[in-house]
Nucleic acid binder design. Structure first.
Length: 259
DNA sequence: ATGGCCTGATCTTCAGGA
């Protein structure tokens, strides 16, 4: 069974590439982030024609998450239970579903903007709410994973130049501690293989030739419980999907499971 | 080759991304 996570940066703009990638990669379940569409705009029909059911949590121009599955889609949870809002708004940043033998959360963690910004405090609260929400599944016997765009680089090796990020979000001790607390529920970081270069970056800024120069970050993560991690046969970043005309700024992380 | 920001809406200018 092949699962993957991909921040597509607008499912509307990315749809042709998404459909091509789903077919060519043979992915059974894809967790999507940053759909940037309303529920009504979500391309359910196009995906159904390829054999995928869609579970969608989206409300407009920002955020939006989904789970696409060819192997069943049950027990969908829309939104993070007891998750914090921002400016009084509950944003669509998390959705969970059971796909065959595996339960998955597709998450788009708040960016944080700047250290000390209200959005940064929101990010930390959101990660704590995520930890609380997954505790039971993480300790269970069913393969379970929290996948998506975490907007945190777990270690200094996960950014191309640590010095450039000094004082910025994504690398702070508080953010990394929040990830450590999440792992403390029984989840481990399923680190993918890079298909080129040393580090398995998953995001490269559109600007300044970051992709050709491999100035990237590993912020799209797969955190799996013991039954999930024990079933992993292979995992890699499909950097080919970052190439060419009209890519997302994130590449898919692919995980092959023996389940 | 992998190439110098992109997306959606407030719509020709801006917020947000990370």
């Amino acid at each position: 069974m092949r699962i993957a996570t991909w921040n597509v940066n607008s499912i509307t703009v990315r749809l042709p590439r998404l459909l091509d990638w789903l077919e060519s990669s043979g992915t059974d379940v894809l967790c999507v982030q940053e759909t940037k569409c309303t529920d009504e705009q979500f391309p359910r029909e196009e995906l159904r024609e390829l054999g995928y059911e869609s579970a969608v949590h989206a409300d407009g121009r920002w955020n939006g998450v989904a789970v696409l599955s060819k192997v069943g889609l049950a027990d969908v949870t829309h939104g993070l239970p007891d998750g914090p809002g921002y400016d009084g708004v509950q944003e669509p940043r998390a959705i969970a579903a059971t796909c065959g033998p595996v339960r998955l959360w597709s998450v788009y963690v708040p960016n944080g903007r700047e250290v000390g910004h209200d959005h940064y405090a929101y990010k930390l609260r959101w990660l704590e709410a995520l930890r609380a929400a997954v505790t039971e599944d993480a300790a269970g016997q069913r393969p379970f994973a929290v996948v998506g765009d975490y907007n945190v680089a777990p270690t200094d090796a996960d950014v191309y130049d640590r010095a450039l990020f000094e004082g910025s979000t994504h690398v702070t001790e508080a953010e990394r501690s929040a990830l450590a607390a999440l792992r403390g529920t029984g989840l481990s970081d399923v680190v993918p293989r890079p298909l080129k270069y040393e580090h398995p970056y998953t995001y490269w800024d559109y600007r300044q030739l970051c992709f050709p120069k491999n100035r990237g970050m590993r912020i799209d993560l797969v955190y799996g419980n013991a039954p999930f991690a024990g079933a992993v046969k292979d995992s890699y970043v499909d950097r080919e999907a970052r190439k060419g005309k009209g890519p997302s700024d994130h590449a898919p992380v692919v995980v092959d499971l023996d389940v």
